[in-house]
Design a binder for these strands. Sequence first.
DNA 1: TATTGTTATACTCTATAACTATA
DNA 2: TATAGTTATAGAGTATAACAATA
Lengths: 156, 156
Amino acid sequence: MVDALAQLTFAIQGVLGRIAAAHDLSIIQARLLGILRDRRPTINGLAEFLQLDKSSVTGLVDRAQDRGLVKRTASTLDRRSVQVSITASGRELIDRVTVAFEAEIEVLVADLSPAQRTRLSAMASTMAIADARSRGVDIAAARPASANRVPRAGHH
Amino acid sequence: MVDALAQLTFAIQGVLGRIAAAHDLSIIQARLLGILRDRRPTINGLAEFLQLDKSSVTGLVDRAQDRGLVKRTASTLDRRSVQVSITASGRELIDRVTVAFEAEIEVLVADLSPAQRTRLSAMASTMAIADARSRGVDIAAARPASANRVPRAGHH
DNA sequence: TATTGTTATACTCTATAACTATA
DNA sequence: TATAGTTATAGAGTATAACAATA
């Protein structure tokens, strides 16, 4: 099991990496844009999402901003913080990457039956949630439309 | 499906990264040691396994060698090439990482039934093989001990 | 000529520590 | 004092191009 999952992970990362590179992006830059599709987090918020130090995020956002993919906006509530958002150009790029990624994943699951795919999808979600929970993060609350999970007490 | 798989991939990479870091390794260094557990590839061979440029592998092996985790041996057949192998110390380290990784994955699959785990494992393998095939690599032939590859016509 | 591996170089990604400007 | 973000710095990881040794 462990071996199979590790292999799968590397395979998917490889696919993602190749597609991102074909669009002149690294995996982490693609991830950044993906997060910003439906959120306007602060630098600290991004650091938490990505599990990176805030100084790493500063650099990440700097490079994306230099390319016109994201922008910083001063927060009106707390003048120390900024809000990071995606630009039209960034959104267009990540949308193209997503389409390509979906097509490639389609190749990987080609040998699975429709029923297997459904089950795989469900299991993957279950595991991602278990991971988030084990780190004390409530991933469900950060979802887009609907996806509202059962309200949970608190963290820790 | 795509989203769930991506989430799962990042979750597993996160787990791997944290465990590797706890043992003073990066993911790629852990992968390198994992590959060397039952193989003695050339630099070019490693580059193919890892899908990296050979110059990247030179640096990777340099750093691992500096730490006494791997070693280079001159090939007797082709004096241009070297064989990279794991040291006792490297093997001990990757074994410890593997044990810790297995324990963490156990947490992630905790919410899955035994039957689901079996199916997940099988599907993960299927997908990893599909990926290898899509890249023209025969992962199955590259397995353990004396995996004497059946002489094959051509690569490409 | 072609291939194996290294070197030189440049860039991205990352963390730690020190700093600034707010709060 | 504490927090949000940046800067300075250092190191790993990666690719491209040029190179030496060998085939």
